[in-house]
Design a protein around this nucleic acid. Structure first.
Length: 494
RNA sequence: GGUCGCGUGGCCGAGUGGCUAGGCAGAGGUCUGCAAAACCUCGUACGGCGGUUCGAGUCCGUCCGCGACCUCCA
């Protein structure tokens, strides 16, 4: 099967480019993972779902992909300079590593709920202190870092003489200087735009390591530079993360890599956009927030009911990863219906059979099927791919209802249609069928018995009995639909 | 204030120079014991103003509104 050429919007060049991996057939992808100091944020879920779909699509295209997603368990400072991990530990009276484990577990559980694939490698910052110290030393040796009072800073001015600093985020060093007027706050730094790559720990710090400069800990940006180099090489294909990480995190990551080895770490920089709620940033302080659990259970003032993880995922898929997505109750309700419509059509499609070698509808259907792939290859455009699938849903339903004649579809075309639907819904989008876990053989047998009994009642025009069965089943989230060719049933998730 | 981005029909959300996005909701119809589902038909939208162009939602300018980021161990 010929796959369309993959195009990716590269934030480094701000252009849509043809994706060409460094090594033919192989892709190295690094995505900045979560800092595990509290429960995973719904916005994080969107980011990692988006990259999971890119990962899955690259696999679908036949690439051998090494997908590295780190876990940050040290070095990510808060505004007040306190380590996020240390703060979490203090608040819960736990060891920092206990905090990291607790929330890493929670994060993994949530990723499982959203049915994302595990990365190939999931390195932790604390497990790569040696690599980070080595990188700091290299940066110093190359003349791009300096020590002051036990801490080491990245010398952005020295760096800017040889490399452009700010190429990813569009920032200019002079402007950064102008912004930071309070020189008292600059401490040991030579220039306001310099940033710490090793920090000396004070006595109260729990997480600290020996280094040539001090007992301390690495700067936040350093871990990704060190770990991506270790597992993907000095230059790899794709680097991803939320677009809030563009500056300073990714900008500094690029600077560190260039300063240590002289090369740009990744060729394609991809950023996911933010998830809003009711048009505004999710924020705990003003109450405009919802946890994934609340979203699933419906226990929140922002929604009228609970939505299953797959409905939430489908909702995310209807929006391109590069656009802000506004989470609203109305939007979720629409997504829920769309998701069931798509899944119902998929099930109907699997029931269709054709004995024709070829048919008059083949050309049209093949064209639509190819477009699904083309759209997805255009910067992972899930909403456009979904739109095409929905056009095919209409065609499938016409065959199901005998409005169109299935004999006009060749068996090869029908097989291709089944394959594209299966590949996109399950392999690429990573959706699961609603109520799948409950559909055992016994339930199937039981339901066909119930439906037979109800059919007898209907034959005798015993509508009260017929409706009673339907209503009682509805209470159990089993929905009955009387079609021309008999009665179908589906289990709804929520 | 600076950097980046956004503003599309009732709602969500694609599209980036001429071609139907799609989903949900709504109206009418087919089918039907009723309901649901499914199918058909229907909305002709692109923040305001100005400009470029044969032609702009799509490019440029400007204004308005919205969002993200603007780190440093104080």
């Amino acid at each position: 099967m010929s796959k369309a050429t993959l195009h990716i919007v590269n934030n480094l060049t701000r252009q849509k480019e043809v994706f060409t991996p460094i090594n033919d057939g192989f892709v190295g992808m690094y995505v900045c993972g979560p800092t595990v100091y509290s429960d995973v944020h719904l916005g994080n879920c969107r980011t990692f779902v988006s990259f999971d779909i890119m990962y899955r699509y690259l696999l679908y295209l036949g690439y051998k992909v090494r997908y590295v997603r780190n876990i940050t368990d040290v070095g990510h400072l808060l505004d007040d300079g306190e380590d996020r991990m240390a703060k979490g530990a203090k608040a819960e009276q736990l060891q920092p590593m206990e905090v990291a484990q607790k929330y890493a577990n929670g994060f993994h559980h949530m990723m499982q709920i959203f049915n994302t694939k595990r990365p190939s490698i999931e390195p932790r910052a604390t497990g790569h202190i040696i690599e980070q110290i080595e990188m700091v030393q290299q940066i110093i040796d190359n003349g791009f870092g300096y020590e002051a009072n036990g801490s080491v800073y990245f010398d952005t001015l020295a760096y800017a003489k040889e490399h452009p600093y700010g190429e990813l985020s569009g920032r200019v060093i002079d402007e950064l200087k102008a912004e930071s007027r309070d020189l008292k706050k600059q401490g040991d730094k030579k220039h306001p735009s310099d940033f710490a790559i090793w920090m000396k720990a004070d006595d109260s710090h729990i997480m600290k390591w020996e280094s040539p400069w001090s007992l301390g800990f690495p700067g936040w940006h350093l871990e990704c530079s060190a770990m991506s180099t270790k597992y993907l090489g000095e230059t790899f294909d794709i680097h991803g993360g939320g677009n809030d990480l563009k500056f300073p995190h990714h900008e500094n990551e690029i600077a560190q890599n260039k300063a240590s080895c002289g090369c740009t770490p990744a060729r394609y920089w991809v950023h996911t956009n933010m998830l809003l709620m009711n048009g505004k940033k999710m924020s705990k302080s003003d109450g405009n927030t919802i946890t994934p659990q609340q979203l699933f259970s419906g226990e929140s003032e922002h929604i009228t009911k609970g939505y299953s993880p797959m409905v939430v995922k489908f909702f995310m898929l209807q929006c391109h990863y590069n656009s802000t997505l506004d989470l609203t109750d109305g939007g979720l309700q629409a997504a829920e219906k769309g998701y069931y419509k798509l899944m119902d059509a998929y099930r109907a499609l699997t029931q269709l059979t054709s004995t024709s070698e070829s048919g008059s509808d083949d050309e049209k259907l093949n064209g639509m099927l190819d477009t699904v792939v083309t759209e997805m290859s255009d910067d992972f455009n899930t909403p456009k791919a979904l739109a095409k699938l929905f056009e095919l849903v209409t065609e499938v339903n016409k065959y199901k209802e005998n409005i169109s004649d299935i004999r006009n579809v060749g068996s090869d075309t029908l097989d291709k249609m089944k394959k594209i639907f299966f590949d996109f819904l399950f392999d690429i989008f990573g959706l699961t069928e609603p109520g799948q876990e409950g559909n055992s053989d016994k339930l199937d047998g039981l339901m066909s018995l119930v439906i037979d009994l109800r059919a007898q009642a209907r034959d005798q025009k015993d509508w009260p009995t017929s409706d009673l069965i339907r209503d009682q089943l509805a209470e159990l989230n089993i929905v009955i639909k009387d079609g021309k060719d008999g009665t179908n049933w589906t289990v709804k998730n929520s």
